[in-house]
Simulated scan of single mutants.
Amino acid sequence: MELRQLQYFVKVARKQHVTQAAEEMHVAQSAVSRQIHQLEEELGVQLFVQKGRNLQLTSVGKLFLCRVEGILTDLERAVNEIHEYLDPEKGEIRVGFPHSLGIYLLPTLIASFRKHYPNVTFRLRQGTYNSLIRDVMKGEIDLAFISPFPEKHSHVTGDLLLQEELYAIVPQGHVLAESKTIRLEQLKEDSFVMFSEEYSLRSIVLEACSKAGFVPRIGFEGEETDTIRGLVAAGMGVSLLPEMALTEISVLQPVKVRVVEPQVTRSVGMIQRTGEKLPLVAEVFRKFLLDFMATKYLKGEDTE
């Protein structure tokens, strides 16, 4: 059994398509098919079944995938540890993040960190709340920015970074656009532009509306803060967004208004796998992050 066979197997399992897997790995489709066939012959089992144009894992294929992913993750970690041992400031940090934190916070942190550690590289993965926790648990990323911060979780632990305020956003010309502050119930007759169900900001907004005594009427849904902001600016409804998601200025811009009743916030944190020591370079980044948040970001100092 060869390492290449295992790598091809995992890629095909994730893509559910030999051609797409081959294109992503920049190899011939026939080479991928041949390696998968040899792997199945060596194991004496069928790992995939054809379903339409896609390949699906068999029951034993799913079992094998879980083990192989762990093996490849451990191997990758071992290679990284060797590189870190030779030069701790030349490692790679695997970081996950939700879209709303990738607009301002993450780029600001990485830019500041790389001024001190210019040879460190980052592998970034965007995801939802549940997918980020899953990726940390599986060891596919070292650290993940996450919101809301899971105070108690069996498999991940971490550090609370900040509590961020959410603002109401309304179109230009809205009856409340000139207000300095509003009560959330003042938006109960408006149509809301909401995040899709898998995004944690949706549940935060729904809970806030519940506290204000109403169920929001959802007119449109989106998956990124840019989409939500643009739809509101276009007059398609109102919404609530974190302050960090409103830093970018575009041609089509909604009006942000502070909500005072109830005040709406979200917790933002950084998580890692419970009971596992971080790679050296990731631990350096984690400590830098905590110092940065305590001494610069939260105090609004210049990050240069």
Rank of each mutant, 00 (worst) to 15 (best):
Q163S: 10
T108N: 13
T303D: 12
E223Q: 05
F122W: 11
A21P: 08
L161D: 03
G235R: 04
K256H: 14
D291F: 04
P171L: 05
F97A: 04
Q126F: 04
P107S: 10
T58N: 01
S33D: 04
L240V: 10
M293V: 12
F192K: 03
L240D: 03
H83M: 10
H17V: 07
I169P: 01
E207W: 00
F285K: 00
S250D: 13
P150N: 08
K299E: 13
V268Q: 03
E189A: 15
D74H: 12
V60P: 00
L289H: 03
F214D: 07
S210G: 13
G70L: 09
S210A: 10
V95E: 01
T295P: 00
F214K: 09
V49G: 01
R123A: 09
L241Y: 03
C209E: 02
I146W: 03
G52I: 02
F64S: 08
V156G: 10
K188Y: 01
S200K: 04
G235I: 02
E42N: 06
E140Q: 14
V18K: 05
K15A: 05
L124R: 11
A78R: 15
Q172D: 10
Q186E: 14
N119W: 12
F122T: 09
L124Y: 13
F195N: 01
L57Q: 06
L280C: 06
G96M: 03
S30E: 13
G91L: 08
E40D: 07
